[in-house]
Design a protein around this nucleic acid. Structure first.
Lengths: 388, 388
DNA sequence: GCACTTTGGCAACAGCGTTGCGAAAGTGGA
DNA sequence: TCCACTTTCGCAACGCTGTTGCCAAAGTGC
C-alpha cells in the first residue's frame, strides 16, 4: 500500500527528504537485487552505499514491512556475531512487458528480479489500426495477468490489471515497439511502414484502457535496458541487426535516449561517402552496406562493416562492451562476433592502447529479450543506478 | 571558511543530509548565476527548483552569510509586496584556468560567474620535460593570482595560491591539455607526440606544488564545458578542428567523458571504408579526409566530410546543436558552418523530420576558450546541473 | 569459562525541508 | 484618508532524515 519509489517528477531537480529516502531506498534495493539468492548483510549494504549501518537498518526494516525483503539465514561468523542475510522477495511486485513487433505481439509477466513468470505471443499486424492493436495488447495483458496472478479478492472495480495495480503488486505495463517515438510523453512518431500511427498517444490510451501505469519506448532501448539489468554493467552498446539496424546505448548504467528519444540512430550512419544508395535516400549507410553484404551471403564483409561502425561508436563514447543481437545476427552469430571483434582489436592496436580492445559478445535473451526489457521500464525505476 | 559544495566523493551514491543540502544549494547557485545582474526573487527560485519558499529563504540566507549572494534592490510590485532580488557576488570565488597547448601556455583567472579578470600567455614547449612544464605552470599561476587578487593578509604560510585557497577565495586550478588522460586520477596517457608524459601524475604534482586543488581534463572537454556554462543548454557537440580533429560531448548539461576519459574520439571515426590512409594507421578517417581537403584548399569538401561526421554523431546521440571551433575552422568559418549545416539539413529532410535539422554555429570564445573552460572545471561543481 | 570480535537494535540527537502563522510593504477601491 | 486585499518573506514548531552513543546478542578462540 505505502509503496516505495515515485521520484517527484515535474519539479526541476530540487530534492526534499522524500526524494532522499527514495534515492537511498532504491540504492539498497538495487544491491539486494544484485545479491540474488545469496543475500547481503546490513553491514555490506552500508559499506557499498556509503550510508551508516544504522541507516541501512532503518531502510531495510521499511522494506521488510512492505514485503519487499526478508531475512534469509545467516552467513558463517568471522570471529563475532554472524551477519544476518537479507534477500529480495521476487513475488512482491510484477510488471508486464509487451513487444509490439511488425508481425507479432509478445507479452511477458515478470517478477521483481526479472524472472519471467508468464508468457504469451500471438500474430499481429501493426497496420491493422490503432483500435485493434490497443485492444489486442489489452486482451493479452489482461489474460496473462489473470492467468498467473491471483486476483486480489476485494476491490474488484474496473479491470483485473487495475485491481492489481491498485493493490500494489502490478507496477504497470512496459511497451516496446520499433520506430521513432516520444518516450517522455508516450506518443508515437512515424512508425516505419505504418504512417497511420503518427502522433498516436499510445501510453495514455493504454493506461486508460487498463487502469495501470504504462511506459513506452523503442525496441532497441528496451533490449538495452534488459541487458543492463541482466548483469551487463557500466557503459555498453547493443546493436540490433534484423530487418533494419539500430542501437541501444547504455551510458553509466542508464539508457541514453536523447531529448527526443532519437538516440541510437545507428543504421543510417554514413560509413562510405558516396557509397551505394540506401532506402533512406542517403548513400553509404551502415545498414545498406551491411544488409547488402548479408543478401549476397558475404557475412565476413557484413561483419567488417558492422565492426567499423561499432568501432566508431566505441571510440566516440568510450564504452566498455559491444553486444550483438537480432535475427540476422542470430543466423550467423560466430561470423558476426568474430568479424566485429577483429575490427575492434585492429583499431585498438593501432591506437596504441595496451588496455586491450572493446570486447564483443552475442546478446543473451533471444526472441524474448525485448519484451523482458520492456517490463524493466517499470521495474528499473525501483532500483537505483548501480555504481559507475 | 565554511564553504559550500564538496559532494561526498568516494561513496557509492548513498546520499545523506549534507549531500542533500549541497545539491539544493548548488541548484540555487546555478539559478542565481543564470539570472545574472538582473537578480531573482526567492519565490522565483522556489518555483524553479520545486522547493518551498521557506527552504529557499534558508538556503539563500546561508549564501548571503557566506558572501556568495547579496540582496540587490527590488522588482516592481504586481499588487503586493515587491519581491526582493538576490544576486550572485562574482568576486566571492575565483579559479585559475590553464591551457597547456603544444607550443603555448595560456593562463586565465576567472571569477564566480566566469568573467576573466586576469590573463597571461607565454610560449612553451610541451616536450621540455615534466619538471620544466610543471614549474612554468606554477610560475604563471602564482604570478596571475598575486597580480590580480590581494594576498589575504595573515596566514602567509606556503605559496600565495595556498594562502588564497585556504582563505576560500581561490577554488583551485583547472588544467586542459591535448591527448588522452585520466580525468578521475589526473594522470596523463600518451600525449600525442610527447611520449615522455606517459603516466605522469600531473594533478597530484601540481596540487602539491601549489597547495591548491587541481583538476585535469582534455582540451576539447574543457572547451565544451566552457560552452555549456556560457549559455549553450541541453545536449550539444563541440567539434574542434585544428592540427587534429576532436570532439567534446555535452549530454544533458554534463560533459560526457566516458569511464576512461576516452570519449570524443571523433577524428579517427572511419567515414570512408578503404579510404586514404591516416596518420593513425587506419584508412578513411574523418580527420585524414577533412585535413587532406583543407590542404588542397577544398574547404567545401572538408566541410562536407565534417558535416557527414557531425550528422552521424547527431543521429547517434540525438543532440540539439553542433558547435565548430579551432584554428582551421577559424580560417574559413562561413565555409565550414554552411557546409556542415547543409549536410545536416539534407539528412534531416531525408529522414522526414518536420522538426528541422540540427543547427550549426561557430563556437564563441576564440583562443581563450579552452583556458576559460579549464577554470570551469572547478567552478562548475558549485552550480547544479541546469534543467534538461 | 572468559575475553574478544562482530553484528545489529534502541534511544537521543542534529539538521534538512515543511507547515502555520504573522509582519512588512505594496496596490486599488471607497 | 482609510481599509481591504495581495504578495513577499521570516520566525517558530514540526516531521522526517541519517547519525551518534550505548548496549544486547551471538559467535570465535584461548
Amino acid at each position: 500500500m505505502s509503496g516505495t519509489g515515485g521520484a517527484m517528477s515535474g519539479t526541476a531537480g530540487g530534492a526534499n527528504l522524500l526524494a532522499l529516502r527514495s534515492h537511498n531506498t532504491a540504492l539498497v534495493l538495487g544491491l539486494l537485487r544484485a545479491a540474488g539468492d545469496e543475500g547481503v548483510s546490513r553491514l555490506e549494504l552500508a559499506a557499498r552505499t556509503g550510508l551508516t549501518p544504522q541507516a541501512v537498518s532503518k531502510i531495510t526494516a521499511r522494506l521488510r514491512m512492505d514485503g519487499l525483503a526478508v531475512q534469509a539465514g545467516r552467513r558463517a561468523s568471522t570471529g563475532g556475531k554472524p551477519p544476518t542475510l537479507l534477500r529480495l522477495v521476487p513475488q512482491a511486485r510484477h510488471a508486464v512487458g509487451v513487444h509490439l513487433d511488425r508481425d507479432e505481439l509478445r507479452t511477458v509477466l515478470v517478477d521483481l528480479v526479472g524472472t519471467v513468470v508468464g508468457e504469451r505471443s500471438t500474430p499481429l499486424n501493426l497496420g491493422a489500426g490503432a483500435q485493434a492493436v490497443v485492444e489486442a495488447v489489452a486482451r493479452e495483458a489482461e489474460g496473462l495477468v489473470t492467468d498467473v496472478l491471483p486476483p486480489s479478492g476485494s476491490a474488484g472495480s474496473g479491470t483485473p490489471t487495475a485491481a492489481l495495480a491498485a493493490a500494489g503488486s502490478l507496477l504497470g505495463l512496459g511497451v516496446a515497439l520499433p520506430g521513432p517515438l516520444d518516450h517522455t510523453r508516450g506518443v508515437l512518431h512515424r512508425v516505419t511502414g505504418f504512417p497511420e500511427w503518427d502522433g498516436f498517444p499510445l501510453r495514455d490510451t493504454l493506461a486508460r484502457r487498463l487502469g495501470a501505469p504504462v511506459v513506452v519506448d523503442k525496441d532497441t532501448n528496451a533490449a538495452a535496458l534488459g541487458l543492463a539489468v541482466g548483469g551487463e554493467s557500466g557503459s555498453f552498446s547493443y546493436l540490433h541487426l534484423g530487418t533494419g539496424l539500430g542501437a541501444g546505448l547504455v551510458i553509466g548504467g542508464t539508457v541514453h535516449r536523447g531529448p527526443r528519444t532519437g538516440a541510437g540512430e545507428f543504421g543510417h550512419q554514413v560509413i562510405q561517402l558516396d557509397g551505394p544508395p540506401c532506402t533512406c535516400g542517403n548513400r553509404g549507410c551502415i545498414e545498406a552496406l551491411c544488409l547488402g553484404a548479408v543478401a549476397r551471403g558475404a557475412y565476413g564483409e557484413a561483419a567488417r562493416v558492422l565492426g567499423e561502425g561499432a568501432a566508431n561508436l566505441a571510440g566516440l563514447l568510450d564504452i566498455d562492451l559491444v553486444l550483438l543481437g537480432g535475427r540476422t545476427v542470430a543466423a550467423a552469430p560466430d561470423a558476426f562476433a568474430d568479424g566485429v571483434a577483429a575490427v575492434l582489436a585492429a583499431r585498438a592496436r593501432r591506437e596504441g592502447g595496451a588496455e586491450g580492445a572493446v570486447p564483443v559478445r552475442i546478446a543473451p535473451g533471444g526472441a524474448r529479450a525485448v519484451a523482458e526489457g520492456a517490463a524493466q521500464l517499470l521495474l528499473a525505476p525501483l532500483f537505483g543506478r548501480p555504481d559507475h
